[in-house]
Simulated assay, not measured.
Amino acid sequence: MSTIYLRRTYMRDLPAINRIIEDAKNALKTAGSPQWQDGHPDRRTIINDITHHLSWALVVDEQVVGVATMVPGPEESYQQLQGGAWSDDDNPYLTIHRVAIGNQARGQHLSTFLFSNLLTIGQERGYTNFRLDTHRLNKAMQAIARKFSFQYRGTVNVADQIDPERLAYELNLPTNELPVEYHVNNDFMRPMINRK
């Protein structure tokens, strides 16, 4: 049985993360999506995510097989939402970015584990508002957003030289009910979650 967990990324993870990001870029290209085809996320972005403790590694049997970033808002590109409105524009939010699973782990439904743990970490930090964006041709990200009850809110434009338009999603959890506190036993994660 595999050991699977989520942890912070470190500089020693950079080669593995670079490979995972390249795998994701190639998968998006194969699917016909222009997302991530203009050179980003690049090495500088990944290093920034690591050094600012924004990046999380999905580890299976001690191998980093996935990565994601959670960035506290406000996000500049989200200020100009088109074709809709955010449901909660008053409370702080976390944006989930740069989600990628490496080729060796694709097709194992690990993105479900990844998202579940990201939301757990966010809730432990007091957030109940989560956002993400993705290209209209990125069906895999749209599917995971729907699976976790993210709601489509409209479109935003991001810094992409090929096609900047992204579908924007939001998840609002009840403020009086934090499932992680009452139903999830992730005590092994508490030391890293509590380091803000």
Results as ranks from 00 to 15, higher is better:
residue 97 H to G: 03
residue 98 R to Y: 01
residue 98 R to F: 01
residue 98 R to Q: 04
residue 100 A to R: 00
residue 100 A to Y: 04
residue 101 I to C: 01
residue 101 I to T: 02
residue 103 N to T: 11
residue 103 N to P: 02
residue 104 Q to C: 13
residue 104 Q to M: 11
residue 104 Q to S: 15
residue 107 G to A: 10
residue 107 G to S: 07
residue 110 L to V: 08
residue 110 L to Q: 06
residue 111 S to M: 13
residue 111 S to R: 05
residue 112 T to C: 12
residue 113 F to K: 06
residue 113 F to Q: 04
residue 114 L to N: 07
residue 114 L to F: 02
residue 114 L to K: 04
residue 115 F to Y: 11
residue 115 F to A: 03
residue 115 F to N: 02
residue 115 F to D: 00
residue 116 S to I: 14
residue 116 S to M: 13
residue 116 S to N: 11
residue 117 N to V: 03
residue 117 N to I: 02
residue 117 N to A: 13
residue 118 L to E: 04
residue 119 L to Q: 06
residue 120 T to M: 15
residue 120 T to P: 15
residue 121 I to D: 01
residue 121 I to S: 04
residue 123 Q to V: 02
residue 123 Q to T: 03
residue 125 R to C: 13
residue 126 G to W: 09
residue 126 G to A: 07
residue 126 G to I: 09
residue 127 Y to W: 03
residue 128 T to V: 14
residue 128 T to N: 12
residue 128 T to I: 15
residue 128 T to F: 13
residue 129 N to W: 03
residue 130 F to Q: 01
residue 131 R to D: 02
residue 132 L to W: 09
residue 132 L to A: 02
residue 132 L to V: 00
residue 132 L to N: 00
residue 133 D to L: 07
residue 134 T to Y: 02
residue 134 T to K: 03
residue 136 R to V: 10
residue 137 L to K: 11
residue 137 L to E: 08
residue 138 N to T: 05
residue 138 N to W: 08
residue 138 N to F: 13
residue 138 N to Y: 06
residue 139 K to V: 07
residue 139 K to Y: 14
residue 140 A to W: 15
residue 142 Q to E: 05
residue 142 Q to Y: 07
residue 143 A to E: 14
residue 144 I to H: 08
residue 144 I to A: 08
residue 146 R to D: 05
residue 146 R to Q: 13
residue 147 K to L: 02
residue 147 K to D: 01
residue 147 K to T: 00
residue 147 K to W: 04
residue 148 F to H: 03
residue 149 S to P: 11
residue 149 S to I: 06
residue 149 S to V: 10
residue 149 S to R: 13
residue 150 F to H: 05
residue 150 F to R: 05
residue 151 Q to M: 09
residue 152 Y to H: 07
residue 153 R to S: 03
residue 154 G to D: 07
residue 155 T to C: 12
residue 155 T to Y: 08
residue 156 V to Y: 06
residue 156 V to P: 06
residue 156 V to M: 05
residue 157 N to L: 12
residue 158 V to Q: 02
residue 158 V to A: 06
residue 161 Q to K: 14
residue 161 Q to R: 15
residue 161 Q to C: 15
residue 161 Q to I: 10
residue 161 Q to G: 09
residue 162 I to G: 07
residue 162 I to H: 11
residue 162 I to K: 12
residue 163 D to M: 08
residue 164 P to K: 10
residue 164 P to A: 09
residue 165 E to K: 13
residue 165 E to T: 08
residue 166 R to Y: 00
residue 167 L to I: 10
residue 168 A to P: 01
residue 168 A to I: 02
residue 168 A to N: 03
residue 169 Y to T: 00
residue 169 Y to G: 03
residue 169 Y to W: 10
residue 170 E to P: 02
residue 173 L to V: 04
residue 173 L to S: 06
residue 175 T to E: 14
residue 175 T to L: 15
residue 176 N to R: 11
residue 176 N to W: 11
residue 177 E to D: 15
residue 179 P to I: 00
residue 179 P to C: 05
residue 179 P to W: 08
residue 181 E to C: 12
residue 182 Y to D: 13
residue 182 Y to Q: 14
residue 182 Y to G: 13
